[in-house]
Amino acid sequence: MTDDGPARIEVRNLQKRFGTVEALSDVNLELRDNEILGLVGDNGAGKSTLIRTLVGLHQPDEGEILIDGKPVTIDGPKHARKLGIGTVYQDLALVDQLSVAENMFLGRNPVKKLGGILPVIDTERMQEEAERILSERLDIHLDPETPVEYLSGGERQAIAIGRALVSDPDIVFLDEPTSALSKAAVDHVERLVEELQNTGHTIVIIDHNLEEVLSMTDRIAVLFQGRVVDVVDSDEVTRDAIVAMMVSGQPMGATESVGESDSASSPTA
């Protein structure tokens, strides 16, 4: 991680309302090159809304998004993919009736021209690619023709992660990638995230398990009722301090001084 140059993604004064609910209010956040940023916060704090806004599923009411210092308007997931962003959604976004390979390549199936004119899905190439990505990147061996409704929760989650890697993105958003996984599979995802960072990727991860967040990330952004409470280095924060920020909506220094009532000589920052 370096602080040199513009952030990979920067959001400035981002606002998003749904009716009268302010889902994001005045969010300012930087995603530095090659870092792993954790997003934590209670349900409804705005984590998923932030991700969905960054991939263009929601358009912000106000504020800007900058990628590598340049302001961008992101039209939708396809555009986000072109900008180098891959996403694993909280709901996995899999279509039960379609196969493993079809899900991984949904919306971007490789196409070949039948008889030189008729564009049809290149099923063979798609299945080979799907199988390769799953086995090389995730060490999972599945028949790419299997409908995903036949698969277990963990396997489904693996497909969703595999799909985010199909477009070979530089930036990967993971919205609760481990919620349906066993302990061993969680370790596997942690290793994958680490490997993604080692190969130059920049990662944003939403996770309810704070131990996982602390061990995986470089920095943690705490959200509370649609705003960013504080962004802290993962090495310099404890689980309890994060919980305090999540609950109180006050930044780290403030919560500690609240905890220690009126003691002005708090030793920690």
Binding site: K78, L94, L106
Partner: peptide, 8 residues
């Protein structure tokens, strides 16, 4: 929703 999230 999944289809939209996949960029369709």
């Amino acid at each position: 929703d999944s289809a939209a999230e996949a960029g369709i």
